[in-house]
Design a protein around this nucleic acid. Structure first.
Length: 233
DNA sequence: CCCTGATTCGC
DNA sequence: GCGAATCAGG
């Protein structure tokens, strides 16, 4: 697979929306997690909270890269600290994103533009981006980025009653993929147990999925199908 | 162990 | 430019 424009767009969008590199890799297909990360960096999509890179006050150069490929750049008189974390937006009560499943699907999405723009805007910080990133005025950052990415619509994953349940996006090679409930239902999810090594299901569901062949002529109630059959329970 | 992202470096 | 290998924290 190669990085077509479209795939790059998808990568950007998902990266900005906070999906993990693994999830992005799965979504795109044909690429590894590493490939995604590598590409993201090459694109300049800069670091999101990394478990490994949390520090920012290296008092004594604890563990600099073993092999500094490039020598230190020129001295940078950095007056402004770089805004790694979203600065506490004054009084912004972090609106809890409550997804209402029954909400009107096709609707003019009310852009979360600053409604409280009544007051005179401050000179410096302009707005908060989609991922909570600060956008800054011209002059203190790089590319414009105005061409609103014609990002593809991707099914949002609400956290309705699914919270805590295994969604399609949670599936990995070692998670039991036995469906619970029926697709389309609000609480449809997957088993989520650890798989029986070598199988797509956990031990219990392997028992349901793989059944010994009985002697000919033996009558037996049909095994419950994962889905598609009449509702059970 | 599993997960994460960052970095390096041969291709 | 690409991404596997490696590193390192949670």
């Amino acid at each position: 697979m190669s990085w077509t424009d479209e795939r790059i767009d998808q990568l950007k969008g998902m990266w900005e929306r906070g999906l993990t590199a693994s999830q992005i890799a799965e979504e795109l297909g044909g690429v590894s997690r590493n490939a995604v990360i590598g590409k993201a960096h090459r694109l300049g999509l800069q670091s999101r909270p990394s478990p490994v890179k949390a520090n920012d006050a290296p008092k004594k150069a604890p563990a600099p890269p073993r092999k500094p490929a490039s020598p230190a750049p020129a001295v940078e008189a950095e007056a402004a600290p770089r805004p790694v974390a979203p600065a506490p937006v004054a009084e912004a009560p972090a609106p809890v994103r409550a997804f209402t499943p029954a909400a009107a699907p096709a609707a003019p999405a009310p852009a979360p533009v600053a409604e409280e723009a009544a007051a005179k805007p401050q000179p410096r910080i302009v707005s908060v981006g989609p991922g909570g990133f600060l956008r800054q005025g011209p002059g203190d950052q790089q590319a414009p980025i105005p061409p609103a990415p014609p990002r593809r619509l991707v099914p949002a994953k609400p956290s309705a009653e699914i919270a805590g349940k295994t969604s399609l996006l949670d599936l990995t090679e070692r998670i039991c993929k036995w469906p619970m409930g029926h697709p389309g239902e609000p609480d449809f999810h997957f088993c989520g147990e650890a798989v029986n090594p070598g199988f797509p299901y956990c031990v219990e569901h392997c028992g349901r999925a793989y059944q010994a062949q009985l002697p000919r002529g033996t009558r037996r109630p049909p095994p419950p199908l994962p889905f598609g059959g009449p509702r059970v329970r």
